[in-house]
Simulated scan of single mutants.
Amino acid sequence: MLGLLIPLSKIIGVNYRDHQAIAFLSVTKNQSVAAAIAVMALSPEASIVPALIPMVQP
């Protein structure tokens, strides 16, 4: 599935850095792991989304 998302990201204009952030969040089921990877790979601000997901999910 990730192999299909890279060409799709290029078509819709998502840069590689943002694509990787989206891929990490969608592939990992453990939110704490997703937050740690996002912080290490991108920046501390990237941890906001994985931290908020459990509050939004029913």
Rank of each mutant, 00 (worst) to 15 (best):
V56N: 13
M55I: 13
A23H: 13
S9C: 15
V14S: 04
I53W: 05
P44Q: 00
A38F: 01
M40K: 09
Q57E: 08
I53T: 15
T28W: 00
V56H: 13
K29T: 08
L4W: 08
P54L: 12
L8S: 09
L8D: 05
M55V: 10
M1T: 15
I48W: 02
V27N: 11
N15C: 06
G3F: 02
L52S: 15
M40I: 02
T28F: 03
G3H: 13
M1A: 14
G3R: 07
S9T: 07
M55H: 13
I6N: 08
I22R: 09
A23Y: 07
V49M: 11
L42I: 12
D18Q: 11
S32Y: 03
V27C: 12
P50T: 07
A41K: 12
S43T: 03
Y16F: 09
L42E: 06
S43M: 00
T28I: 04
P44K: 00
Q20F: 05
L52V: 12
P50K: 01
Q20T: 09
G3P: 07
R17I: 08
I22S: 10
P54D: 06
I11W: 06
A36P: 00
A34P: 09
L5P: 10
P54F: 10
I6F: 05
G13W: 01
P7C: 03
D18M: 11
I22C: 04
P7G: 07
I53N: 14
A36Y: 05
K29H: 00
N30V: 07
E45A: 14
I11T: 15
M1W: 10
I11S: 03
S47E: 01
Q31K: 14
L25M: 05
A21V: 15
I11G: 03
I12V: 14
M40Y: 11
S32E: 14
I6Q: 09
A23R: 15
A51W: 04
G13T: 02
S43Q: 05
N15E: 09
P7S: 05
T28Y: 02
M1H: 10
A46C: 02
P54H: 08
D18H: 12
A34F: 04
P58N: 02
Q31R: 14
I22K: 07
V49T: 05
R17F: 05
M40G: 10
L42S: 06
V33A: 09
L25A: 07
I11Q: 13
K29C: 01
L4A: 15
M1E: 14
L8Y: 06
V33Y: 01
S47Y: 01
M1S: 15
H19T: 11
E45H: 10
Q20R: 10
M55N: 08
Q57Y: 12
P54Y: 05
S26H: 14
F24I: 15
P58C: 02
A51H: 15
S43R: 06
L42W: 08
M55T: 12
P44A: 01
L25R: 10
K10S: 02
A34V: 08
S47D: 00
A21S: 14
I37M: 05
P58F: 04
K10I: 00
I6C: 04
V27Q: 07
M40C: 08
Q20L: 12
K10M: 01
L4S: 15
Q31S: 10
L8N: 09
M55G: 07
I11H: 10
S47I: 03
R17P: 00
